[in-house]
Design a protein around this nucleic acid. Sequence first.
DNA 1: CGCCCGCTTGAATCAATTCAACGCTAGTGG
DNA 2: CCACTAGCGTTGAATTGATTCAAGCGGGCG
Lengths: 255, 255
Amino acid sequence: MSVSSPLTALPQLNITALKASCANCSMHQLCLPMGLDAAEIVRLDEVIGLRRRIARDERLYQMDQPFRSLYAIRFGHFKTYQVNAAGDEQITGFQMAGELLGMDAISGERHHCDAVALEDSEVCEIPFEGLEHLFAHVPTLLRHFHRIMSTEITREQNVMLLLGNMQAEQRFAVFLTNLSARYAARGYSASAFQLRMSREDIGNYLGLTIESISRLLSRFKKQGLLKVDKREVTLLQPALLKAMAAGTERCSPMA
Amino acid sequence: MSVSSPLTALPQLNITALKASCANCSMHQLCLPMGLDAAEIVRLDEVIGLRRRIARDERLYQMDQPFRSLYAIRFGHFKTYQVNAAGDEQITGFQMAGELLGMDAISGERHHCDAVALEDSEVCEIPFEGLEHLFAHVPTLLRHFHRIMSTEITREQNVMLLLGNMQAEQRFAVFLTNLSARYAARGYSASAFQLRMSREDIGNYLGLTIESISRLLSRFKKQGLLKVDKREVTLLQPALLKAMAAGTERCSPMA
DNA sequence: CGCCCGCTTGAATCAATTCAACGCTAGTGG
DNA sequence: CCACTAGCGTTGAATTGATTCAAGCGGGCG
């Protein structure tokens, strides 16, 4: 299952086999080490903990657990969600390779949400204390870290706009468009991809019911916007979908 | 209108008169300098720019403007809102004294939203480049800055929960409870305060219409939850309101 | 005074939900 | 190998919470 964890130093070769090395990681242009030079990456490697495999439906962390580390996704997908006193869940995001998990926990020293793997995944554990020490010596890293946090803030503001102002159709168009762009940024097809999350998860994230998601998919399919087979989606009119997401185009609920 | 700006050093007394000094600011226990010692506050003061007065309805910054500075609110209230391609606005937050504005702009080097004063207000301009230099030398400041950004992330996640899962009544209860707690943290009454924003702004923020807000206020008033006179609100049953906000108590839409 | 703006209230409407039934597929176990 | 079940997804019909439309109030200001 999981890699054995040597707490003491080992010869270089073994360490790289067991520990994450950012230089070799296919995500290093998207992830935390973005823009660092070779020497700086070595220093970051020293801080980064072991890789950790998380099976589908397993939790990476849970609300109220003490916060020690951030996690960078090497591969796989996650969802994060909040639970309130009444037991309502709200998915706050879907994360994919190269993205960072756990930033919401820095303030309270406890996690504020749960992170669950949507498929078998692997993360790099990044002990936050070590990272903080490194910030003083690698300003490039600090600046990039601030960018990442700031990006997360703007992402959430965009979701607020979505949930506060948009109707079902537009929400879903935004959702698909956003996935498309993120896969494209990772070198995958912008027009054909797998939904890693259930219809229920999508609905929860978008503030809609599972039935509404199902109906939207059917409607978009009927209108020739996309093809769906189970969770495999192919966007047939990406430009139109983008226009719908932007709010400049509407697709009437059938002629 | 605005204070003249001496770029060269001046005798201590004049500097404190003209420039913001965190040590004397009533907000310093809530704001950026929280937890700094006297010497560190002096260094922060060196970085912080001039105070700036913003009249009611004036903009502090605007979407797509280049990002140079964060702003700490000395007194007054602001709203921040996003505008999408279709022209829909979404208010992403209401900010009060001691809170920091502009963090969403760090990533793209441009502002991602507009910030408008809800009443005559005053902010400290904090040039971000200077702040970044200081981070390397004042780790306490850096840690607190990360806390602030992280808090903003969790705040927005809470709004996502609100917009995605809650009904009108609960949203409004959350809104009032949240204002109450923030005023209490500033030494003001937790049960009686002025709404600085219009009903329309509240509705926009909560994903509801102005009519819904008006109806909710009337209903809460009729049910003895609160008193309202124009924008002056008095919470008569704060505990019940909190329970409604938490989702553990419902207040039927009239008997 | 008269107008405008912010707000309130009522009645009609509607988008999305809820309720309900059913289909498909994968996995399980006899 | 097939029957059986559980989980996920689809679809239709009825319901509803909030919106939209419409009218009117009241205070502040030119």
